[in-house]
Amino acid sequence: MGLHVLKRLAAAIPVLIGLSVIVFLIMAMIPGDPATAILGAYATPENVAALNRDLGLDQPPPRRYLIWLGNILHGDLGRSYALNRPVLDEVLERFQATLVLAGTALVLASLLGLLAGVVSAARQFGWTDRAVTFAVLIGISTPSFFLGLLLILVFAVRLRWFPASGMYAIYGGGDLKDLAWHLVLPALTLAVVATGVIARLTRTAMLEVLRQDYIRTARAKGLRERRVIRVHAFRAALVPVIPVIGIQAGFVLGGAVYVETVFQWPGIGSMLVNAIATRDILLAQGGVLVVAAAYVLFNLAADIAQTLIDPRLR
């Protein structure tokens, strides 16, 4: 088991290096450079050249990449051109915020999704199943930025139950309660699609398991239906669902970009959008690297969880 984890971690390193090369190449190839983005209307060739020299961008790209890679080995991700602060500080701060949001959304999606899927399967073709399936399809097909704005309009502007944006109150606040209160709308928005996917999959997996012989045996033994579903069927159905939750973790991280923008959540998604728009190469690279590493880790975690539940995979 430990060896397996180590192997998987080692395999992630070439993936991350490859990713960093791709991001570097893309940032180097898209037209416009940081100096032009910073100077805007004042970007004369002369001013651009001077600023590029100050930013160390007058070196050829391969050399810049190697310098960057070398610095990373020393734990230095460089300094953001646009924000004037170390990339690592910004990325870690932002990533924490994203983890709080995406983590809450994923837990929410897993709980609601599994629940909906199991209920739906247990009452196949009944009204509960139809209602759940209908709600799930609506959830999967609603774009999250639209849903986010809708929730803001209803719960923040009209009802004033929840704040419209931000992670903490702007005046006072700052404690866990304040955070939870700010989390409700964005976490719900972000959870909706993943909930739908998990619910659909759980339903299918449950239905399959419920047709198995051992379930018939369990029922024939005279076990109550509730116990059959909870103990015998649910655990077996979890096996194919767990890796999907791992993949959903990746999608939730990706989907956070929209939700963070709509709710002004100070996460890494909105940071990356800004970094690319302002051609803040080092910040974009640092951000992508961290997100990619997290994605790899989530999938690994899902793998391990699956192995723990299903002894056959060991």
């Binding site: 704005l149 803001i152 923040a156 704040p163 419209a164 923008t261 002004q264």
Partner: peptide, 18 residues
């Protein structure tokens, strides 16, 4: 000074008294 990049969110904050 609060940064709110999305124009619609900025509008919503203004309307909700934030």
């Amino acid at each position: 000074f609060r940064p709110i990049t999305d124009a619609n969110t900025r509008l919503a904050e203004m309307m909700s008294g934030g």
